[in-house]
Write a protein that binds this DNA or RNA. Structure first.
Lengths: 141, 141, 141, 141
DNA sequence: GTGGTCTAGACCACG
DNA sequence: GTGGTCTAGACCACA
């Protein structure tokens, strides 16, 4: 399972967004324990070889979304309580993602069975199912 | 099912990409008949209230991907047969799509079961199984 | 060996140019006997499923280049004497083509040996070496 | 050997393609060091007296082909490693290039021997074997 | 009529 | 500073 946060500067999606989503995923998957500290902006920036302002932007958005909590003078932490998302919005986003993948598959002439298999395989890789990995903080080096 | 192509200029995703994906979806769903003409660049541009160059870019990309076929001086048409890809490339693209959806789901805290359900539902809508949807060209006005 | 003239309406190179080069090749390879008639504009156009004006344009250019000869009221024929090309221009064109192919190969990390093999294979396909095909006129149906 | 990128606006081949092929050649010849930055879109555009969008199109295509690498907000760079292609696709592209050159040669009445000689000569020039050419960035003024 | 290219200039997000 | 997108309008070649 990928616990390490990675970033691709050549990707179409902005680096700050990659970081934001990466952290979201780490939190959602339980890799980041609630209440525990995340690396400082500078530390993570150095590790990712990225501009600190970029990390800061991601952290600010995550804080705004209620995923992270900034304690001045202490550092940044994972929020204790998971934020909630409007259920309509949630299912819209999910549905869009599903439609995009389904559309791609159909366009490529893939049948549903194969599409599902590939999806399951991807899911396993991401969530590290069956792995007994200890819960951990975000590692930066 | 959405047959009409729509575009949102304020959206974060580029207009040309919205068009590209819209057409992909129309083709995938069978709303656009293979071999039939799509609206001319200018026509669609006028309909969408968008610059012709923007539509052209989408069309060119779709042509490059083997979805559309450009006949110079004549117009643009839906390819007769779905694009044939190198099998490696094919599975790469498919895997990427799957990973994107899986990643999205995990990030949102959706479990695999729900993700699969939503995907299946989307698939059904697109492939229009059992549906009596009349085949049609892209309508522009 | 490919004696048949083919045309791809989706290609970047204009149809009239495809025809022109096709005929040039047929003449150069000896498939079209000097002095013999080529199909009429209308016949070839119908066969290629192409606008007659497009064929006419190709024929006119070929006539201008001294490859074909139009005899009013009789038809169009292959010129008896092969046209000559300025030797500098000739080698420039050739050199450009060679550089393009070499550049492509190097960029793709292909070594010279492989590049030559592929070239030879292509050459054989085009010129039909080793084949005992009878000389013939252009066939249109 | 030509290190300077030049462009001819009156040429039949589109400017963006001239740029694309120019860069390909510079990379192939080693004149552009892997990982090193290429001139910014605006800089090159100004140097070539061309619209930035035109350069951008070339760069984007090169990025898509894995020759260049775009780092958003930073600039554009030569990819560290030559693009890796599906082997089928690879041989298709190579074969196409070879066929184009073979076809050109035959059309001009050149025999295989000469075609090979010219090709070898071009190859040598590009790969600069035994040459002591100083590696350099793309020069824009 | 079609698509393709190019320009000039604007605006945006990123780092 | 960088690249990306979009517009408006022009011009061209093709069919």
């Amino acid at each position: 399972m990928k616990r390490m946060l990675k970033v691709n500067p050549s990707d179409a999606v902005p680096i700050w967004k990659q970081i934001e989503e990466g952290v979201r995923r780490l939190v959602a998957s339980g890799a980041l324990i609630r209440g525990a500290p995340v690396p400082s902006v500078r530390t993570l920036a150095k590790y990712l070889r990225v501009n600190p302002a970029t990390v800061a932007k991601a952290y600010q958005r995550l804080a705004g979304a209620g995923i992270l909590k900034v304690k001045r003078g202490e550092g940044t932490f994972v929020e204790d309580e998971p934020p909630t998302l409007g259920s309509e919005e949630r299912s819209n986003i999910l549905r869009n993602g599903a439609t995009r993948y389904a559309s791609l598959s159909i366009t490529m002439g893939v049948d549903r069975k194969e599409a599902l298999e590939v999806f399951n395989s991807s899911w396993r890789k991401l969530s590290g199912k069956g792995e007994k990995a200890p819960r951990c903080f975000m590692r930066v080096n």
